[in-house]
């Protein structure tokens, strides 16, 4: 098990290095960094001095090494656009996105998993079919349409919920949270729902098809033949086996939500990382983009590692290193 984790960690290091290289290439070769930093009136000699002091005249490998070591030590550099340290910009935006991602993940799990189980066990039933058709509509409509639709109903027509921004937040250290105020929760609800609907459908359909497969296996038949009660067969025997593949997809989905909730964030003007990324693209803020790229890759690597560890928790075959 230890060997497994350390192997995965080593692989992660290589993945991160590869991503850093791409980010570095983006940063160093898409446009001239100095030209973007200085104004028209800076003399060529001054430009050269800046270039020298920034180390841009060093060999490429030296530059890459210092780029990576800067990243590792948390020195992310400055934004072209706002002149702020990138670390500060991202740190101030990250809580908003993570909280949004967590709530939408919870929505998708709390509704998707039970709905998946229900539709698997009551195959062809009226309620099951209704759920399937309804969620099919949910998955076929683009996210921004759902967002606008929700804004229209709950924000404009009914006027129950705010339609943009985070509302009241409480600051704990550098972390601003929505979770501690009612207004914060109200603001969170619509964007989280918008993001959650799509994941919910995927989760539900995945749980459903996996569960149907598991219910056909011999060990479920054997459990029934031994007279194990239904509740235990469904939730102890079958669900556990169902969750093994489901966890992988949920993990990747969560990563995707955090990294690319750009559309939802811009529809609801949610001040998260997605919106930051969108602004960076608009103003060709390359340092922010390259740091963002590295951070997102890091997040996916961490999520994958967590998923692997969860595998080991659920599946004894992984835990004890079975060869089959």
């Amino acid at each position: 098990m230890l060997a497994f984790i350390s192997r995965r960690l080593l692989q992660s290091v290589f993945v991160m290095l590869a991503v850093s290289l791409i980010a570095f290439t983006l940063f160093r070769f898409v446009g001239d960094p100095v030209a973007q930093m200085v104004g028209q009136e800076t003399s060529v000699a001054d430009q050269e001095r800046i270039r020298d002091s920034l180390g841009l005249n060093d060999p490429i490998t030296t530059q890459f090494v210092s780029f990576v070591s800067d990243l590792i030590t948390g020195n992310f550099g400055f934004s072209y656009r706002t002149r702020q340290p990138i670390s500060e910009m991202i740190l101030s935006r990250m809580p908003a996105t993570i909280e949004l991602g967590i709530v939408s993940l919870l929505i998708s799990l709390l509704i998707g998993v039970p709905a998946g189980i229900y539709t698997a066990l009551h195959r062809g039933g009226a309620i099951a079919n209704t759920i399937l058709v309804t969620t099919l509509i949910g998955i076929s409509i683009p996210t921004f349409v759902i967002g606008i639709f929700l804004i229209f109903i709950f924000g404009v027509q009914l006027g129950w919920l705010p339609t943009f921004g985070r509302g009241d937040v409480v600051t704990i250290g550098w972390w601003q949270t929505n979770f501690l105020t009612i207004d914060g929760w109200r603001s969170l609800l619509l964007p989280a729902l918008t993001l959650g609907v799509y994941q919910l459908t995927l989760t539900m359909r995945l749980v459903r098809s996996e569960m149907q497969d598991v219910m056909k296996t011999d060990f479920i038949k054997f459990a029934r033949a031994r007279g194990i009660n239904r509740h235990s067969i469904h939730y102890n025997h079958a669900l556990r086996n169902t969750m093994v593949p489901v966890i992988t997809i949920i993990g990747l989905q969560f990563g995707g939500v955090i990294a690319f909730s750009i559309v939802t964030e811009s529809v609801f003007q949610w001040p998260g990382m997605g919106l930051l990324f969108l602004d960076s693209i608009r103003y060709v803020d390359i340092p922010v983009m390259s740091v963002y790229l590295v951070l997102i890759a890091l997040m996916f690597v961490v999520i994958n590692l967590i998923v692997d560890l969860l595998y080991a928790v659920i599946d004894p075959r992984v835990r004890t290193g079975a060869t089959h």
């Binding site: 011999d218 060990f219 054997f222 025997h237 556990r240 086996n241 659920i314 004894p316």
Partner: peptide, 9 residues
């Protein structure tokens, strides 16, 4: 091989 639940002891 298939008649025992692989995830339970």
């Amino acid at each position: 091989q298939t008649s025992l639940n692989p995830l339970l002891s």
